[in-house]
């Protein structure tokens, strides 16, 4: 179900918590699983539930509560743009508009070529560096002018 490398990473997370509280590692385990699979399919959640000795629906609760998990397949690159007030004041909504126009998709949609999913994010704790774009949850790009956004899209397309 998950690769040995993923399981090793999950085991490392489990080791952080008291032995009787393996469930504490569920968030990390789902992150690892999502890194490998791209999204959290039913079977993936079921596997994580078994691995951690949890009820599957309890895993589902966690996966659906935290909004960085993908409960359906996403594009190769998920771009998340913060639309909160401070970022908005600093141009992140313009940046979002620019991305929408460039990609031809709205928030929550994926480009036809399956390369990009555009997502509306909430505060990323990087307000002063707005506009901020998060790529696949893990890589943050800040001070994103339209020119920098174009460069980012070009770079990701080339990869």
């Amino acid at each position: 179900m998950l690769s040995p490398e993923s399981l090793r990473r999950i085991d490392r997370e489990i080791a952080k918590y008291p032995a009787e509280h393996k469930q504490s590692a569920v968030m990390a385990a789902l992150i690892v699983a999502q890194d490998e699979k791209g999204w959290l399919a039913t079977e993936t959640m079921d596997f994580v539930a078994q691995y951690l000795g949890m009820a599957p629906v309890a895993v589902y609760e966690v996966a659906s509560f935290y909004n960085m998990y993908n409960l359906e397949p996403a594009g190769q690159y998920k771009l998340t743009v913060c639309t909160c007030l401070p970022c908005g004041l600093q141009g992140s909504l313009d940046a979002a508009d620019h991305l929408k126009a460039r990609l031809g998709v709205d928030f929550g949609e994926t480009t036809a070529d399956g390369r990009f999913t555009l997502k509306e994010g909430e505060c990323m704790g990087a307000c002063a560096m707005a506009p901020v774009v998060l790529v696949n949850n893990k890589k943050m790009h800040d001070y994103m002018s339209n020119a920098k956004l174009d460069a980012l899209l070009d770079e990701l397309r080339k990869r």
Partner: peptide, 14 residues
């Protein structure tokens, strides 16, 4: 409802 746009005034100002 998804809410990505400011009214032009604010967007311009930003």
């Amino acid at each position: 409802r998804a809410g990505a746009h400011l009214p032009p005034a604010m967007a311009r100002a930003a």
